[in-house]
Amino acid sequence: MHTLFAPKHGVELWLYIAGSLVIGAGLLLLLCQTPQRLRKPVIAFVTFLGGLYFTLEFLIPHDNYFTHVMPEVVNAEIVVSCFTLFIGIYNLFGVHGRAIRRKQPGWYNSVAFFAAFFLIASAGFIKDMRPDSAATPLFEILFNGFMNSLQSTTFSLIAFYIVSAAYRAFRIRNSESVLMMITAMIIMLGLVPLGSALTSFIPANSFFSFLRLEKLSYFILLLPNMAVQRAIAFGVGVGSMAMGLRIWLSLERGSFFDEEL
């Protein structure tokens, strides 16, 4: 066994890799032949095995076998999951390739998509192979000049919508909305320097110092907010425990679990 899994080199290595792929393909062919009635139990069993690993790793006292092999398990999981990258690329290529082929409205945007994809990917690979080439500054331009700016600007758009939403939706309709609005205002003012300067005329050591905005907002965060968040966290904790168990034991229902196989 030890000799079998020992590192191989040269032609022998490639033969072993080819052999592994052939065996793997054979196993997949075998899976394709699985009768329909056995498919769901097989998936449930594999899901159970996956969950069992971490359950045992937790339940068995520290320094157990499962903890020791964790680095290998994680490595394998990362590598296998990285193969999913091509699913996203395949879908995007399909959508944009179709748009160009059929000359759909805005097809030139799809051309821009392909150009951007190949430009940054090739610049990245070339800069790794030849760091002194023009690919290095080109990669910088594409990353910092375009990608970074586009992503951060797109995210910052939400600021405009939150202003619009606060202005239009925060109305004094009932006592609860008033309470929420006042709390939000105190937090917004108390956390920023100009806001806390508004009540800085109240002496810091006086009896009324608790009315200073920074102290009031901090009190809200530390006591009422903390208690509310903890109550919500307990709900989330129990809910995720139940959900975890349902997934582990394949008891969960929904499109993924109920679909005909």
Binding site: V163, Y167, F170, R171, M185, M188, L189, V192, L194
Partner: peptide
């Protein structure tokens, strides 16, 4: 940013008050 935030927060609070 902290000072810009200060101005933005006061502006938003004014908007909420105006809206109401």
């Amino acid at each position: 940013t902290a000072w810009s935030l200060s101005c933005a927060h006061i502006y938003i609070i004014l908007l909420i008050v105006l809206g109401n």
